[in-house]
């Protein structure tokens, strides 16, 4: 594996990783050839506060990997451990932001966030607590003014922001973003990338994002896992993104290292 530039701080290295992916594989059983892997990973350790992006050509199975991490699909081989325990079912410790907004259409933006909060079996909160907490998280994505609107009254970007607010509200150990900006127009997409950058620098969380956008990956992540093309796609590169935080688009654009990395990523995605 080339380009193994690990740039973890000493404190991160000392601590146990929050998530350990231990060689997971998903595949199918062929009658003649036996088990045929379709998509998989090597061992990956994810440390607290890291922003990890899985990038790969379309159809390589990035989303399947994220679904396995989320516990929505089971791996045929290998295990994923969250804080030491294997993940075998979806959990509130893994906040998911889906590619399309998954807001319940009969609820307002605020009620959608409240729904995520009130279903928590561990903490019972009063109605007022729930509402003010929901407003807090909507404020985080600058949506206080739209809290009472139904999803169909929101633009695509706003819908996705409500989804992000809801995932944050769970206070999960790891946030999983499945091409969260994939369905948006270029302008809104860029706007939300900046907002996401701002959010993850303000709220130090652990993120795993799937995308096929190289610039998005470079802007947001600490580490990029590059998937090869299928069939039997695997992680071919594990790249550290060396740019210091807080990041600015202008500064990145002037950095020759940024363009070098971008070039490298584009080449490995197109298979050159």
């Amino acid at each position: 594996m080339p380009d193994m530039m690990t740039a973890l701080s000493p404190t991160q290295l000392e601590r146990e990783p929050v998530m350990k992916i231990e060689g997971i594989t998903k595949g199918f059983n062929d009658r003649k050839k036996g088990f045929q892997p379709v998509v998989g990973t090597t061992d990956v350790d994810i440390h607290e506060g890291e922003f990890i992006t899985i990038i790969g050509p379309s159809g390589c199975g990035k989303s399947t990997i994220l679904k396995m991490i989320a516990g929505l699909e089971s791996a045929d081989e290998g295990t994923i451990r969250l804080a030491g325990r294997p993940i075998d079912a979806p959990s509130r410790e893994l906040g998911i932001v889906f590619q399309q907004h998954v807001l319940l259409p009969w609820m307002s933006a605020r009620q959608n966030v409240i729904f995520a909060l009130e279903t928590d079996p561990r903490t019972k909160r009063s109605k007022q607590e729930l509402a003010s907490l929901a407003d807090e998280y909507l404020d985080l994505v600058n949506l206080s003014h739209a809290a009472d609107r139904r999803p169909h009254q929101l633009s695509g970007g706003m819908q996705q922001r409500v989804g992000i607010a809801r995932a944050f509200a769970l206070e999960p150990q790891v946030m999983l973003l499945d091409e969260p900006l994939g369905a948006l127009d270029a302008l809104t997409r860029h706007e939300l990338q900046l907002q996401l950058l701002d959010l993850c620098e303000k709220q130090k969380r652990t993120f795993i994002m799937v995308t096929h956008d190289v610039d998005e990956a470079l802007l947001l992540s600490d580490r990029i896992l590059v998937m090869g093309a299928g069939p039997s796609a695997r992680i071919v590169h594990d790249i550290s993104v060396p740019f210091s935080r807080p990041r600015e688009v202008e500064n990145l654009d002037q950095d020759p290292a940024y363009h070098e990395l971008r070039h490298f990523l584009l080449n490995s995605l197109t298979g050159h």
């Binding site: 989320a70 998911i96 889906f98 998954v102 279903t119 079996p121």
Partner: peptide
């Protein structure tokens, strides 16, 4: 019903009652 609604309900670890009355039935 949008299968992602059910994925959401699962990922929120909702109980069966909530899943039926708050997600499945309204949808």
């Amino acid at each position: 019903v949008n299968p992602l609604f059910l994925d959401l309900a699962k990922s929120l670890e909702t109980d069966t009652k909530t899943r039926i009355f708050k997600v499945l039935l309204p949808a």
